[in-house]
Simulated assay, not measured.
Amino acid sequence: MTLVADLPKPVPNPLAGLKLKFSGALPLLLPVSIIALWQLAASAGWISNRLMPAPVDVVLAFWDRTVSGELAVDVLASGQRAISGLLVGGSIGFLLGLANGTSKLSFSLTDTTLQMIRTVPNLALIPLVILWFGIGEEAKLFLTALGVFFPIYLNTLHGVRTVDPQLIEMGRVYGMSGWTLFRKVIFPGALPSIFVGLRFSLGIMWLTLIVAETMAASSGIGHMANSAREFMMTDVVVLALVIYALLGKLADATARFLERRTLQWHPAFQTPEKG
């Protein structure tokens, strides 16, 4: 009879660690390859430096702006505007989505009007916004908040309305009603859709902000790009685009981190156990 202790131990796979490291570096493969080809094309003269500066020139522009302190001021100004717009527009959209998702009266009163406003392009409102608020910070806050509002509103409304009816019925069987049912069943069931709206709104947030910052702003990444355009400083313009991309990626990564931490109970966000 063979005892369990006599069974051969599994031999560790030496390639397992290599595969893990490769999977971690895989997302960087495409951007690094694009930058390398970009630098090669610029060095070989295939791309005019006036049209598209080499990555090295963009890095030098980044260093110059960092040393002078201008970059920190612009990034901080844009970050404050973006966060303010997200808090204002996101909060209103979230609350209206919850209200319209749980109340038929609220939905009937407000949803039709909101859907009509949603079809109007945000940037088409710029002349009217300037008449309302001038060219100060209020106009930038309004445009950013409006851009953030609708993705969060629609996804919150969709999330609340698509919660499994059987879960709601089960909660009622266990004696839940009102606030308890909403807190323990409806809201957790709507969270995946709410996070989708948050991630989508973060992209709209930066898209709206870069246009809003061209309205006579004295600071911000959009102002930096607009000023560089006037002086044909393409390296600074490309630097501004890269910074927007990095900030957008950082915001999305933060939302995904919160999503994973908040939805650990959800099967789609659980890490499979290693055998």
Score class of each variant (00 low, 15 high):
residue 221 I to D: 07
residue 209 L to M: 01
residue 131 L to F: 11
residue 175 G to P: 01
residue 8 P to H: 08
residue 188 P to Q: 07
residue 68 S to R: 11
residue 70 E to C: 10
residue 173 V to D: 15
residue 275 G to R: 13
residue 273 E to K: 12
residue 185 V to C: 09
residue 80 Q to H: 10
residue 269 F to K: 08
residue 156 T to F: 03
residue 123 L to M: 14
residue 135 I to C: 01
residue 6 D to F: 00
residue 253 A to H: 08
residue 257 F to Q: 15
residue 101 G to K: 04
residue 41 A to E: 12
residue 142 F to R: 06
residue 73 V to R: 15
residue 55 P to S: 08
residue 49 N to V: 13
residue 83 I to P: 00
residue 205 M to P: 01
residue 82 A to D: 04
residue 17 G to D: 12
residue 270 Q to F: 05
residue 74 D to A: 10
residue 75 V to R: 00
residue 22 F to C: 11
residue 139 A to N: 00
residue 124 A to R: 00
residue 187 F to E: 12
residue 243 I to D: 12
residue 78 S to I: 03
residue 48 S to G: 14
residue 138 E to G: 05
residue 25 A to I: 12
residue 244 Y to Q: 13
residue 262 T to K: 08
residue 47 I to H: 05
residue 91 S to Y: 03
residue 143 L to F: 09
residue 236 V to I: 10
residue 144 T to V: 15
residue 244 Y to I: 13
residue 46 W to Q: 13
residue 218 S to D: 15
residue 83 I to F: 12
residue 127 P to C: 11
residue 112 T to P: 06
residue 2 T to Q: 12
residue 250 L to Q: 09
residue 90 G to M: 08
residue 175 G to D: 09
residue 98 L to G: 01
residue 273 E to G: 14
residue 67 V to E: 13
residue 35 I to Y: 09
residue 181 L to P: 04
residue 1 M to P: 03
residue 55 P to N: 07
residue 178 G to M: 03
residue 133 F to R: 04
residue 152 I to M: 11
residue 218 S to W: 09
residue 274 K to Y: 09
residue 266 H to A: 02
residue 238 V to E: 01
